[in-house]
Computed example of a mutant assay.
Amino acid sequence: MSFLSKYLRGWQFRTTHPTLQPGSEVNVFLTEYDPGEEMGVAFVGDTRLHVKNARPEHVEKRVRVAVEEFDAEESVGHGEFVEVVGESSYVG
């Protein structure tokens, strides 16, 4: 095995369209709140996750979401807010 092969072993490229597994919980940064739908929105790369039971005050916070459904072709999922797990890293 060459030095380069040893060095690159295990490397892989990350996708901009990650998949989410229904039944799993993920921590995401809530970026938007849709008052018409009364739910939050998070992006994981180009994947969009709609979060029900999120409140406007959860925007710009890291939250845990229970994934309920996911469409891999459209890169869109739906889940339910579980809890706030972190604050924004933005310094005002």
Score class of each variant (00 low, 15 high):
M1I: 00
S2M: 03
S2Q: 09
F3C: 01
F3W: 05
F3N: 13
F3E: 11
F3V: 00
L4A: 08
L4H: 00
L4C: 02
Y7F: 08
R9T: 00
R9M: 03
G10E: 06
W11I: 03
W11G: 03
Q12G: 00
Q12I: 00
F13K: 11
F13W: 04
R14W: 06
R14G: 09
T15W: 09
T15N: 13
T16H: 03
P18K: 02
P18N: 06
L20N: 01
L20Q: 05
L20T: 02
Q21V: 04
P22N: 03
G23C: 06
S24T: 01
S24G: 00
E25Q: 05
V26W: 07
N27A: 10
F29L: 12
F29V: 03
F29A: 00
T31M: 11
E32P: 02
E32I: 00
D34F: 04
P35Q: 14
P35R: 10
P35G: 07
G36R: 12
G36M: 11
E37V: 01
E38K: 15
E38G: 05
M39L: 15
M39W: 13
G40F: 02
G40Y: 02
A42C: 13
A42S: 14
F43E: 12
F43P: 04
F43G: 02
V44N: 10
V44H: 03
G45I: 03
D46W: 01
D46A: 09
T47E: 13
T47D: 11
T47H: 07
T47I: 07
R48L: 13
R48T: 13
H50I: 07
H50S: 12
V51L: 08
V51W: 05
K52M: 14
K52P: 01
N53V: 06
A54V: 10
A54E: 09
P56W: 09
E57F: 10
V59Y: 05
V59C: 10
E60S: 11
E60P: 00
K61Y: 10
R62E: 13
R62C: 09
V63Y: 04
V63S: 02
R64M: 09
R64F: 01
R64C: 05
V65Q: 01
A66P: 01
A66F: 07
A66I: 02
V67K: 03
V67L: 10
E68V: 04
E68M: 08
E68T: 03
E68I: 03
E69F: 00
D71G: 03
A72L: 07
A72C: 07
E73S: 08
E74T: 01
S75I: 02
S75D: 09
V76W: 01
V76C: 04
G77Q: 06
G77R: 04
H78I: 04
G79Q: 09
E80D: 13
E80F: 02
E80I: 10
F81R: 12
F81W: 12
V82Q: 13
V82R: 12
E83M: 10
E83F: 05
V84D: 05
V84R: 09
V84S: 04
V85I: 12
G86V: 08
E87G: 06
E87L: 11
S88H: 11
S88N: 14
S89H: 14
S89T: 08
Y90F: 14
Y90D: 08
V91T: 12
V91L: 15
V91Y: 12
G92Q: 15
